[in-house]
Design a protein around this nucleic acid. Structure first.
Lengths: 218, 218, 218, 218
DNA sequence: AATGAATGAGGTTTCATTCAT
DNA sequence: AATGAATGAAACCTCATTCAT
């Protein structure tokens, strides 16, 4: 017997409401009762869909990151060449992070929790997205090397670093209370990376434009 | 009437013990009683030195970051030219982060808390170190530009980004369970940045060495 | 959705048990756990019915005084003439106070708390009963004046004073460890008042009997 | 070796300060530290003069009531005839209560505590003043009977009742937030009592004046 | 399936009192 | 004599989770 559509829809509804409340109040300060209120259901009903508060927390994070991955996947698929694929990833990241600005503390709480809990599912979920991005980035980096845009390098290492850097910029943006434009910061970084990795030939073509961006700042 | 040396020493002792327990157990799961036990004092005594658990949390973070800043300051002062000053910062960061690997979740919790609490002292403390690093970085970047190593650029923007990137690499290292050597990752990143920013003349001198590091990965 | 009968009954049950424990131990020394034990429920359950210990305290007092008012109301309604109405009030008071002898310290604590707390509901509740008694007394006093029993006087002032005097006698009785019969004391006082207020004509009819009571004491 | 004057003076100073703080904050909410602050001494010093907080509470009450008794004693001694002695008591009571209006909740707390504690000194102290007033009142009542002003009656019972009534009026005054003039209320009551107790002869002389007061109210 | 009444472990903070200096 | 640092018992209230209906 398949799980009814209703059941799935309701589950997602709870996740959506929980995301709201968790984001606003934080994981620890959020009471299941508040989530139930937000979802317009009884407190006990939440437990029909999620065994524990922790499981619901994981579901919220999973929903966010799955959506993020899906967006990137479709945008990258729609782009035709490696360079516009890279741009698609960057744009998706900026949009995702900007739309998640209010949820930033919760992301930190989730990461902290993932590092803390004995339940390996948390860290696994965090790294699923990291690896998705890393593999995608490495693949594109290799293509750019092959296409003669980038000089030869360790694409896997590069991509792994990039994934962390992306989170770091987001973190800075949030901690500094969004006092600088996130998209400009990403472009700035991309220019710097670009200048560092371009082959001499590519530098002739693109170097000036990238250098100009670095001069302009954000 | 000056606060006695004993009082100050005991306060620091409590901070040290609290740092241990908080790191191991996490801010929320830590009970004041456990900190008191670790410090070999009564629970009430903790409250003679810190008004609330939150204040103690702040004191722990402050102690860490103040020590970090002091280390950087002295190392940078000891270095004689801009390039070795940059290396001093990088080495200090790597050492700090490596020594704080076990404390990483607590740093995340602190950041999350800083973004959540209405007490502005938390975010202020976070950003004090950020600004310290940013200003230091911007100053050095300007010197490198003037010395002809780096092409002209927005040094403030560059330094601000770098500060975030540094945290991001640490975050990646921790979330991926320290599966790569942190120092190598930092060197990799420095090479990439270097290649991007070098003047054509400097590239002639250093480019090959940096490109080699990128090829080798970490 | 009406609150279920069960909920109301349980609430009253908690009030009853709380009244017992509060009376025995005093407001401050009483632990919610003890009330829960007395009611045969969990500590948390108490908080399902009362937001705070203070609110429960108010509920206990309210229950007592509401019952007191109800008794007086019904007895006064049952009496046919002003004089027997006055007697009904006096008898009700004596019975109430005698049945509340063990609770006297708690009444004092409640009054003290009412004067202390910023929550105006406490003093309001205290004065609700006072005004009920005052208005009733003033009404009857006026009737007795009109009927020619009492000489003319300020009935409102008289009734207000009487209400306080009644509490004062109770207080004396309690502080002196009930070393005199409360009912006799009330009768004594009533005789004294009577003698003071009677019209000359009424005094001819009743004076001797009242004077005899004063001679006899209590 | 006699206790030094300094020691006695300091003890009284602490009592004075404790009276202030207790009155303002209430017995339970008052911290020894606050009393020490008010007295400009160290917390530990309080314990050099009083074994416990409870003992200090008793000392405060004792100081108040002893002063009250002393005032009455001297005023009564200064009055020459029974009627002006009665007036002296009434005036002293009104003045005492008016000056103690702010302290009323603490008096209630003290009475409640006296009824609650196993330490008999509390109730004993309360009743020492009661008996002082009762004996004084009974004595004067007997004199008034003998002088032909009052009809014969049980003077001891009368005086005992009067003592309670006096507290009751004060209680009413305080609970009703001093919404009526205390001195007028006392005069009103005295008139009522007078009218009740006067001999027929005395009534001829004084009755109209007293009846007029009852008509005027307060 | 949905609910919400019941629970009790848990945790921060307070504060009277002690006692070494 | 005076102090204040140290203590730990105490108690309110919260809230995740359970389970009978």
């Amino acid at each position: 017997m398949p799980i009814s559509v209703d059941k799935v829809a309701k589950r997602q509804d709870i996740i959506r409401c929980a995301a709201d409340v968790f984001s606003r109040t934080g994981y620890h300060a959020t009471k299941i009762q508040e989530i139930a209120n937000a979802a317009g259901i009884g407190k006990g009903t939440v437990y029909e869909y999620f065994r524990t508060k922790e499981e619901l927390f994981l579901a919220v994070y999973d929903a966010w990151m799955s959506a993020y991955e899906a967006v990137i996947e479709s945008r990258v698929a729609a782009a035709t060449d490696p360079i516009s694929k890279v741009d698609a990833i960057r744009d998706s990241a900026v949009e995702f992070y900007q739309s998640r600005a209010e949820q930033a503390p919760l992301l930190l709480e989730f990461w902290a929790h993932a590092l803390r809990t004995s339940n390996p599912a948390f860290l696994a979920r965090v790294n699923r997205t990291r690896h998705f991005l890393r593999d995608l980035g490495a693949d594109l980096a290799r293509q750019l090397v092959e296409a003669g845009w980038f000089a030869d390098m360790d694409a896997a290492a590069f991509a792994q670093l990039e994934t962390g850097i992306s989170d770091g910029i987001f973190l800075a943006w949030v901690l500094e209370q969004r006092s600088f434009p996130l998209d400009k910061a990403y472009t700035f970084r991309q220019s710097m990376i670009g200048l560092g990795l371009l082959t001499p030939e590519a530098r002739l073509a693109l170097g000036d434009r990238l250098a100009g961006k670095l001069k302009r700042g954000f």
